[in-house]
Amino acid sequence: MRIIHGLLAAALALPFAIPGARAQTRVGEVSTTFRMVGPNDKVVVERYDDPRVPNVSCYVSRADTGGLSGWVGLAEDPSRFSLACRATGPVAMPSGIPKNESVFRQSASALFKALTVTRIIDEEKRVLVYLITSTKIIDGSPYNSVTAVPVDAPAR
């Protein structure tokens, strides 16, 4: 059943994939609410590697709704999440990178809702700022999380 749920979730996420973005890696999960039918509600931790900035990995914790509707892929996950991005090696600013760019996008419901991670460059402080938000066709959510990764100083 987990295989069917995973395949359904992957199929629903395809329209939201960003070209060039690597697939996320599930790091772990913790059950939060027991469900009699279907999987439990849980908090999931996933890692996304920035596709345009080598050595930057972002960790997203998010709610994953279980139960029967979650099992069949029809549940809408709450817009509550956390984000932490870290340098996993030397970080250099790639040339020609946009100042503001959507880096990752993942479906949070069967229709019309997605979590989006946006990279913003703070050139003055030489920092990459990552912001996660929830978007819907009509409106988004005020819930958000932000983190920053310093860019290594250029060689002299």
Results as ranks from 00 to 15, higher is better:
residue 103 V to I: 09
residue 118 T to W: 07
residue 80 R to K: 14
residue 51 P to R: 03
residue 127 V to T: 07
residue 16 F to M: 08
residue 133 T to Y: 00
residue 3 I to P: 01
residue 37 V to H: 08
residue 57 S to F: 06
residue 93 M to W: 00
residue 58 C to G: 15
residue 63 A to R: 14
residue 24 Q to D: 13
residue 47 R to F: 02
residue 39 P to Y: 15
residue 140 G to I: 06
residue 89 G to F: 12
residue 72 V to K: 02
residue 84 A to F: 11
residue 81 F to R: 11
residue 118 T to N: 11
residue 18 I to R: 13
residue 134 S to A: 04
residue 29 E to T: 08
residue 23 A to F: 12
residue 21 A to M: 14
residue 117 V to G: 11
residue 119 R to L: 06
residue 74 L to W: 10
residue 124 E to I: 04
residue 140 G to P: 10
residue 33 T to V: 15
residue 117 V to W: 00
residue 36 M to T: 14
residue 104 F to G: 04
residue 153 A to E: 15
residue 113 K to C: 01
residue 81 F to H: 14
residue 84 A to L: 12
residue 96 G to W: 04
residue 118 T to K: 10
residue 77 D to P: 05
residue 54 P to H: 12
residue 40 N to V: 04
residue 153 A to R: 14
residue 38 G to I: 09
residue 60 V to H: 05
residue 28 G to E: 08
residue 57 S to G: 14
residue 145 S to G: 02
residue 64 D to M: 12
residue 57 S to A: 15
residue 5 H to P: 03
residue 7 L to R: 01
residue 24 Q to F: 11
residue 20 G to A: 12
residue 58 C to F: 09
residue 105 R to A: 01
residue 20 G to I: 10
residue 133 T to Q: 00
residue 101 E to W: 13
residue 45 V to K: 12
residue 53 V to I: 03
residue 115 L to I: 05
residue 109 S to H: 05
residue 35 R to F: 03
residue 77 D to R: 11
residue 149 V to L: 10
residue 24 Q to Y: 09
residue 8 L to I: 12
residue 125 K to F: 03
residue 18 I to A: 08
residue 22 R to M: 13
residue 73 G to N: 04
residue 70 G to E: 09
residue 109 S to K: 02
residue 59 Y to H: 13
residue 144 N to Y: 11
residue 34 F to H: 07
residue 125 K to Q: 14
residue 89 G to L: 14
residue 133 T to I: 00
residue 69 S to Y: 09
residue 67 G to Q: 10
residue 108 A to I: 03
residue 121 I to H: 01
residue 123 E to M: 04
